[in-house]
Computed example of a mutant assay.
Amino acid sequence: MYEFLKYENNNGVATVTLNRPEVYNALNDGITFELQDALKQVGKDDTVRVVVLTGEGKAFCSGQDLKASSTQEKRSFIDSLHKRYNPIIRAMRNLPKPIICRLNGVAAGAGCSIALACDIIVAAEEAMLTEVFVNIGLVLDSGSSYFLPRLVGSAKAFELSTMGSRIKGQEAYDIGLINKVVPADQLDEAVKTYTDYYSQAPTKAIGMMKKMLNKSGNSTLDEMLEYEAFCQEIAGSSEDYKEGVTAFLEKRKAQFRGK
């Protein structure tokens, strides 16, 4: 199906694996367009309730493939971002389903941005996040200037981005950059804890909550109160709401279908 990705869908869990391990899953033109397509597929597929994004081999994603881009005569950064990277980040944040980052190794540059665009990050202790843009005289892109200060505050975000700091699993957890850190041999089990939950959860409500939280960073309280009311009316008409109430009254566990 894809040349540079692995794609699986098992029991409501879609796993998308960046698959260029020989270059630490660096991002060339092909893999970025394939990732855009894969995100469209999970959005259309009603059987998918949760997405896992990870990397093959030792790395999660080392960022832009500098060797590939150096062979181009004249590279337009703005075109690259508009056509390749920004559509990925927008698709991830607009996807009405949770995305779990299985952070198995280094996430650098745009790879770090992609990790931060996920809804939950579960990292191995030796995994590392680093905003390496400054090391080659570039600025943050692919959403890192948006995500970083919201996760760690403006002062820490400035330090991490302007110094290209390398943040390993435990420190990343301590500063609020990721959700969970575990030994490497427990990574799959830790990710499964989340996918087991989200694959059985009320997906429609979770998708709306994701949209609400995205919106809240640039909205007033009054705007969010109105938006909450709008979304709650939709949620209250869902099959999952009816099932949730019925299960509560019957004193049993709800069997949500994500509708």
Rank of each mutant, 00 (worst) to 15 (best):
E3G: 01
E3V: 04
L5T: 07
V13P: 12
A14V: 12
T15P: 13
L18H: 05
E22L: 06
Y24P: 00
Y24I: 05
Y24H: 13
A26M: 04
A26W: 04
L27Y: 02
N28Y: 01
G30T: 09
T32K: 04
T32V: 06
F33P: 01
F33Y: 13
F33N: 07
E34Q: 08
D37Q: 15
Q41N: 11
K44Q: 15
T47N: 14
T54H: 03
G55L: 08
A59V: 00
C61R: 05
Q64Y: 04
S70G: 05
Q72S: 03
K74P: 00
K74L: 12
K74Q: 13
F77R: 13
I78G: 06
I89C: 03
I89N: 01
I89M: 13
R90F: 11
A91T: 06
R93V: 14
I99E: 10
I99K: 09
I100T: 05
C101Q: 06
C101I: 15
R102T: 01
N104P: 06
V106P: 14
V106M: 14
G109A: 05
G109P: 00
I114E: 11
A115M: 03
C118M: 09
D119W: 05
I120H: 10
I121A: 11
E126T: 12
L129A: 02
F133Q: 06
N135K: 09
N135P: 00
I136F: 05
D141H: 15
S142N: 07
G143L: 04
F147Q: 09
R150L: 12
R150M: 13
L151W: 06
L151A: 10
V152S: 08
V152K: 06
G153Q: 03
K156A: 12
K156I: 12
A157L: 00
L160P: 03
M163Y: 04
M163E: 08
Q170S: 06
E171Q: 12
A172P: 14
D174T: 10
I175M: 15
G176E: 11
L177D: 02
V181G: 10
D185S: 12
V191D: 10
T193D: 13
D196Q: 12
D196L: 07
I206S: 08
M208D: 00
M208S: 02
K210E: 01
K210R: 14
K210T: 05
M212H: 07
N214L: 08
K215S: 06
N218M: 10
L221V: 15
E226A: 14
E228K: 10
A229W: 08
C231R: 03
Q232W: 06
E233A: 10
I234Y: 08
A235L: 08
G236I: 01
K242Y: 09
E243W: 01
E243M: 11
V245N: 11
F248G: 00
F248V: 04
L249E: 14
K251E: 09
Q255V: 13
R257E: 07
G258I: 01
